[in-house]
Design a protein around this nucleic acid. Structure first.
Lengths: 223, 223
DNA sequence: CATTTGCGATAGTAATACTATCTTTTTAAA
DNA sequence: TTTAAAAAGATAGTATTACTATCGCAAATG
């Protein structure tokens, strides 16, 4: 028997639950492929529909617009990542070891997770690196936040913030440090590949160096 | 006599130099206003043209498309900020004092600079916080980088990286730390205002706390 | 005085981001 | 097994966006 991981998504993110039908799952699967290939700007519902073999109207039955779809994918990613983290750090008692493990998970290219058949996590991870911030860098961020669209992201940062506090209860900026390492795990990766002058890893292009940088940053901060 | 600060911009960023004519300056001035008010997604050349009292075709004579205009504004901002920084830290010899001053300049709301009449730096600063990353978070980042569109940003980070090295020549990640503080000076500000759960400053919403956080982060890293 | 240039005005096109409606197929409850 | 509701397919249509092209006037330039 195969385990299936189901993530309960905020209902306001979709018109019809894409995880509850075949077409819905295809929409998720193919949108990940297309956004990864062409970028979010060039991604349209028409292309997606053609790619799946359905019509534009068919997509609109699931998602109001492409922004909502991006927010959906982003929320899904953070929820999935939080599960990965809680799973993979489950037995670790020492908060420092735990934090190290988390940094590694944040900054490492993920492999496609068999537990979720329709979403390719490896591609989604790439998408979140280069398109993820566009989910909240908008004029509607306030509205979207009121509807709890960013809850998975905030939850993850909260969890990391608590572990930071467990490492050093006197440290004054656990939440900001948490959001810093989450953002930087992605940005330093993007810079390393695309704007290498902004990093110290341009030559080797090794994720391990990003991990070393983030560990240095965090554990010196907590000393 | 009034001093005029002229920033020499990359010629590939525009079709016709906007700083060399009246209409061009109006395009810069009004695009800052409109992007600030409606956000970059809702900003169109048609709205801009109507706002100025010219036609769409008139705008296209200056900028190929709105992405180029955003990259232009972003490049202008970083070039302007680097000048501000070099000006305001000119006499400071101690690299630590210098770095502190820079962090303050990065994280502080700027006032409109009288030296540049047509661009409102205070608004532009806000724009760069919420739209700035969209200049490079695209599929064309490689092409754009080849044409040196991000040179002002990279130059600023390089300058900061050198001061970091001057503070502690043994520190292994000066460039990554530089890009981290530049990005975080903006992101923590955005989060503080829009997604306060991601920061430790949600209650007070004080820029000074962001500065304190960044100082803590940097100087513990360099110890 | 001739000429470039800058700009306004107008027109047109392909693509995007939707909305609406009607029909057929699938599913699931009576 | 029938029946009706839900999902999906097919088609059409609209407003807006993101451009490109052309023309002619007026001011600056040489």
């Amino acid at each position: 028997m195969k385990l299936q991981l189901q993530i309960k998504m905020n209902e306001a993110l979709y018109v019809r639950n894409p995880e509850a039908s075949d077409l819905g799952k295809k929409i998720l699967a193919h949108s990940v492929q297309i956004i990864h290939k062409y970028g979010f700007e060039a991604f349209t519902f028409k292309k997606l529909a053609e790619n799946i073999g359905t019509t534009e109207a068919g997509i609109y039955r699931y998602f109001e617009n492409k922004h909502k779809l991006l927010v959906y994918l982003s929320a899904w990613y953070w929820a999935w990542l939080e599960f990965q983290i809680s799973f993979q750090t489950n037995n670790i008692k020492d908060p420092k070891t735990k934090l190290k493990r988390i940094i590694k998970l944040l900054a490492t290219t993920v492999e496609d997770d068999e537990k979720t058949s329709y979403i390719n996590e490896a591609l989604l991870h790439q998408i979140i690196i280069s398109e993820g911030s566009k989910a909240y860098l908008t004029k509607q961020v306030g509205e979207d936040n009121k509807q709890h669209f960013f809850k998975p992201y905030k939850d993850l940062c909260a969890v990391i913030g608590e572990i930071i506090t467990a490492c050093n209860p006197k440290y004054k900026y656990p939440k900001s440090l948490a959001s810093t390492i989450v953002e930087m795990a992605h940005f330093q990766n993007f810079f390393m590949i695309n704007l290498p002058a902004l990093t110290d890893f341009g030559k080797t292009k090794e994720e391990d160096e990003i991990i070393a940088f983030l560990n240095d940053l965090v554990f010196k901060s907590l000393k």
